[in-house]
Structure formats: C-alpha cells, structure tokens
Amino acid sequence: MSKGLVTGNAYTLGSIEQGEPCCEAVSHFSIRDLAVSYQQETVLSNVSLEVYKGCITALIGPSGCGKSSFLSALNRLSDMVPGAKVSGDIIFEGENIFDTSVDVRTLRTKIGMIFQKPNPFPLSIRKNLELPLKEHGVRNKSEIESKIFDVLHSVGLWNEVKDRLHCSALSLSGGQQQRLCIARALILEPSVLLMDEPCSALDPISSGIVEEMIQRLAGRYTIIIVTHNLAQARRIANYAAFFWMTERVGKLIEFGQCRPLFESPQHSLTAAYVSGEKG
C-alpha cells in the first residue's frame, strides 16, 4: 500500500508520502452546513466538506476548534453528550444520518471509532472482540474464530497475543491496547474509521507502529483522523481539513488535497498554522 514506509519515531518529519493517490474521488460522506452546540453555546458552525472513499482525511487545527465535535457528529456519538445539538446534514452512503428512519446502532456498526486513550473493555482479549460480534448477531463459533484471526492479523497483533487471548486486555501495553481497539472496531466490518488522535497517548515507538498500520488500512477503509501532529498529517493523509476558532466558534478554514494544502495554502491562517507561526 504505502511505498516509503515511515519508520519508528513519529516526532521526526518523514518524507511527504501520501500513499496511493485517490484518483477517483468518490464521495463517502457529504457534510452540509454542519453546526454543533453544547448548552446553547455554538462550538462549530457552517462546516461543509466531502470525505472521499478509501482516502485518509486529516482534521488539523489547534485544540478547542471543534475537530473532535465534528468527528463525533459523524457517527452520532454526540447524542450521548448531554445538551449537545447538531444541525445541518450529513449524507452517508446516500442517506441522511439524522433521518428518523436511521437506526443509530446499525449506523455505528458501519462507522468504527477509535479514541485518543485506548479503551479496551476490562475483559479478556477474546471477549473484547466477541462482545460486539455477539451483540450484532454473529453466533457461529467458527465464524467468530476466523473473524478474530482476521482482524488481529490486520492490526499486526496476532503473533503478539495468539497465546494469551484469554488474558485481560488491560494487561497489554498502551500501543497494543490501541491496536486491539482498532481490531475491535474492524471486526464489525465498517466502511469508515473515525480516529480521534489515536497516537497522542502513546509512546513514540507504539505511535509509529499504529501510524504505519493506519496507512496500511487506507484504501480498504475511509479514514478520518484528528491529529495535532502536523508531520503525521502530512505523512499519511490524502486530504486535509484545517479548522480554526474565530470568535470562540470553530470554523472550517480550508479543505483540499493534503500536499497542496501544506505547500501552497490558499488562506493566510492556514499558511501561518502549517508553518508553525500560529497555533
């Protein structure tokens, strides 16, 4: 998938490697006029953008500018936050996810999510993967086994844990826990992965491993990743969206292909941010 592999440390600036170019831009998500508010206080307004199938879209910008709010609107996890209101339209696979006919739990099986802090359940490694499968009606033992094998392979965890699937997931290292969480999201065969700073709570080495894995997953999955690490965004993303806060409300300033956005930004704020002058 990716040609020049980024090795090891995520804190050094690697070559500007975008993976496969997304030649045919097929829209997966269309977001129109999205606004998010908590307790009547608007934190994000007027966001419209397209997320393309099989590509990695990076959301960049300083903290507090609404990137995470944007992300959690995409799988309606914002429903869980008391006092949160989302308006606008999000068309996902031809359907508005805010329609009353949409079943949220089915929607969330199609859109996986990875959080900043690894959050495996306090169960065994196997149970962590079984729980979502059983919840969504997969009961056949051999089918479960083969799916567990597949996803652990995809995240490169199989060889590390194959002998201790019955051990507590909390006994794994931070990086392993995060990869298990990714495996847990993959096991439901989603088409999209939402990632909220998946590497920021990890040490540099684990962070590198996870980053490399994300690159391998691109193409098979549409990936939307929030990151504070500009170098990382540059390395792995095909598209980038730059958010900024004006008058205490988060706004989308610029959106486009990753390389042009970094090398010849259209907006002065973007230029200042990617060059490190602001933020």
């Binding site: 914002s78 429903d79 949160a84 209101k85 989302v86 308006s87 009353t100 079943d103 949220v104 739990r105």
Partner: peptide, 11 residues
C-alpha cells in the same frame, strides 16, 4: 431543529 432523539423502541 433537534435531531438527537432516536425513537426506536429497542432493548
């Protein structure tokens, strides 16, 4: 416009 309510009567 409040879109955060799901009406399905599930488990």
């Amino acid at each position: 416009m409040n879109k955060s309510v799901s009406q399905t009567k599930d488990i």
